[in-house]
């Protein structure tokens, strides 16, 4: 699957057939700091992803002072 990430913007290919939580763990990302969007739809941690999915991992942390 194609995984789109931010800060900095980049795209990586990863093997599918894993849950959202497993994907975040594999990328060493904290769930509380991210939303995961699969093929344009927001998905929870136990959603199972497939090889042909396009995933956006969107950070939600902002530095407002």
């Amino acid at each position: 699957m194609l995984v789109k990430m931010r800060n900095p913007k980049r795209e990586i290919e990863m093997g599918g057939d894993r849950t959202v939580n497993h994907l975040l763990d594999a990328l060493d990302l904290v769930r509380e700091s991210h939303l995961v969007i699969c093929n344009g739809t927001l998905v929870p941690g136990d959603a199972r992803l497939a090889d042909d999915d396009v995933i956006e991992i969107r950070p939600v942390i902002s530095g407002g002072c």
Binding site: R6, N7, V30, E32, S33, P59, I61, G63, G64, C65
Partner: peptide, 24 residues
């Protein structure tokens, strides 16, 4: 979605990261 380039790495963001590690 992009973060303010000047704010990147500031203390406020570090504190958020610490709290989210506890929250996890």
């Amino acid at each position: 979605v992009e973060e303010c380039p000047i704010a990147a790495g500031n203390r406020h963001l570090h504190h958020k990261g610490v709290l989210n590690s506890i929250e996890k």
